[in-house]
């Protein structure tokens, strides 16, 4: 069964026909040619497909496209504006926070979403619940970024990059 939906992707309204079974990830990649979100596991286990969906980090392989008609989506490609990289993207380059680059767009979207969560005071499993606000220590960043796997093992660079961007 097909449905016509509209997705606002990186600032552009995109009309697309999707199968009711089509994930948001496949709608973006295979129907719209938006390849920044990557397919690593298709089961919500690796985080490579992370985008910002209505400003929150979401794993698009676990979301059906048909349920998100009208959604606002920002991918790693859309985070860069007018040839200017987002500070998180620049920090990933500065700290070599990737090797093969396949998990990277998901890591970066996840980091951008995570920084907002921390700023809003959302605690993680390692947060000091008595503290007034979240202090983004390396341990906090590692905990909050552990939904995004990196097989190349660039975690040290990823944490350093996010620390830089958070400053």
């Amino acid at each position: 069964m097909d449905a016509e939906i509209t997705l606002h992707v990186d600032g552009t309204a995109r009309h697309v026909t999707v199968d009711a079974r089509t994930t948001l990830l496949d709608a973006l990649r295979e129907r719209l040619g938006v390849m920044a979100p990557k397919k690593g596991c298709d089961h919500g286990q690796c985080g490579s497909c992370t985008v910002l969906l209505n400003d929150r980090r979401v794993i698009t392989c676990l979301v059906l496209a048909v349920a998100h008609d009208g959604a606002r989506i920002v991918t790693a490609e859309g985070l860069a504006q007018d040839d200017h990289l987002h500070p998180v993207q620049q920090a990933f380059i500065d700290h070599d926070g990737f090797q093969c680059g396949y998990c990277t767009p998901g890591q970066i979207c996840s980091a951008v979403g995570m920084l907002k969560e921390a700023e809003a005071g959302w605690p993680s499993a390692v947060s000091d619940l008595a503290a007034a606000e979240v202090r983004l220590s390396p341990a906090e960043i590692r905990e909050r970024m552990s939904g995004n796997l990196c097989r190349c093992g660039a975690y040290a660079g990823i944490v350093a990059a996010i620390q830089q961007a958070a400053r």
């Binding site: 390849m35 979100p37 490609e77 990933f92």
Partner: peptide
């Protein structure tokens, strides 16, 4: 030297096999 493919990779525009048009 920072990776020359860095910008392509952090913006998700580096083309992996399945992504070629």
């Amino acid at each position: 030297l920072p990776r020359l493919d860095g910008t392509a990779k952090v913006t998700g525009t580096a083309r992996y096999a399945f992504e070629h048009r």
